[in-house]
Amino acid sequence: MWSTEPLTNGTNDVCKKLGIPIIGYSPLGRGFLTGAIKSKADIKEGNILNHFDRFKDDETIKANYHVVELVNEYAKMKNASNAQIALAWIRKHNDYPDKYAKFIPIPSSSNPKRNHENNTAVELSDAEFDDINEKLSKLKIVGYRYSKDAENFLNV
């Protein structure tokens, strides 16, 4: 939900045309969309996130937290977890095969409780999906997914 470039940079269109699914790697934003990371202090020393632009400092984390707040809003409304809402949003794209390629989110966790949560589907209505998309389109995301240099390899 905070890396929507495949929807606008031509990736979706080409994958849809060729029947290639889009794999949602780290669909929970490396835990960010769950609300687990509110500040730099929430990232342990040695964690790879310390090398990614979107986690570089408290200012950047705070600047992007509006995405988490949107997910929180829907999680409360649907009596679901943030993870379930983020995953539901990705899966909802599959309800529109004329507009989107097939999307397959691949959340991961070594925690059995989180795996169960991630695999307990929550459904979004068409109106909820449209509302989330409209709100996401108005949010500015600060920082590269990885770093400026690594970003060049993401869209090859």
Results as ranks from 00 to 15, higher is better:
Y100D: 05
L124V: 05
E117Y: 01
A121E: 12
S3Y: 06
L124Y: 03
G29C: 08
Q84H: 09
R30Y: 14
N12D: 11
P21A: 06
A63M: 07
D131C: 05
R30K: 13
G10D: 08
D95K: 12
Q84W: 03
S125W: 03
R91Y: 11
Y146D: 09
D13E: 15
E45H: 06
F55G: 00
W2D: 13
D98S: 15
V67A: 09
F103T: 02
S137W: 05
K92V: 08
I132L: 03
E117I: 11
H51K: 11
N119V: 00
G31R: 08
N47Y: 00
V68E: 02
N72G: 04
I141G: 04
K17R: 15
G10V: 10
L18Y: 13
F52E: 00
I22G: 02
K78V: 05
Y100W: 10
L49R: 15
W89V: 02
I23C: 05
N82H: 06
G143P: 07
R54H: 05
H116C: 09
D149E: 13
S137L: 07
T11C: 15
N115M: 15
P27H: 04
K56M: 01
G46P: 08
V71R: 03
T11K: 07
D126K: 11
M1H: 14
L49F: 03
H66N: 14
P112T: 13
V71E: 02
S125R: 00
I104D: 01
D57K: 06
K56D: 02
L139P: 02
K135C: 01
Y96T: 08
K40I: 13
R91G: 10
N64K: 05
N155H: 12
W89L: 01
T34E: 13
D58Y: 06
K140Q: 11
S108K: 12
K62C: 04
R30V: 14
N152D: 08
Y96A: 08
P6H: 09
A127I: 03
K56C: 04
A150T: 02
K140T: 15
K56F: 02
T11W: 11
G31D: 10
A63P: 09
K138I: 08
N9H: 09
A63G: 12
S81M: 03
T8M: 09
K148D: 08
D98T: 15
F52N: 00
F55K: 00
P21E: 05
K16A: 10
K92T: 15
N119Y: 08
V71N: 06
A150Q: 08
I48W: 09
D98I: 07
I20E: 03
D95P: 00
A121N: 11
S147I: 08
Y100Q: 07
I106K: 01
M77H: 12
D57N: 15
K76S: 13
D57I: 00
K56N: 02
L33M: 11
I106A: 00
V68A: 06
A121C: 07
L33E: 02
I106L: 07
L70Y: 01
G46R: 00
N79W: 07
I106S: 01
N152V: 09
F103G: 00
V68S: 09
Y100E: 04
D149S: 10
G35V: 05
H66C: 13
K17V: 01
N155R: 10
N79E: 11
F153E: 07
Q84T: 10
N72L: 06
A41C: 07
W89Y: 11
I90K: 03
T60F: 01
F153V: 06
N12T: 09
K140Y: 04
A121T: 14
V68P: 03
L18Q: 12
N12W: 12
A80R: 08
H93N: 10
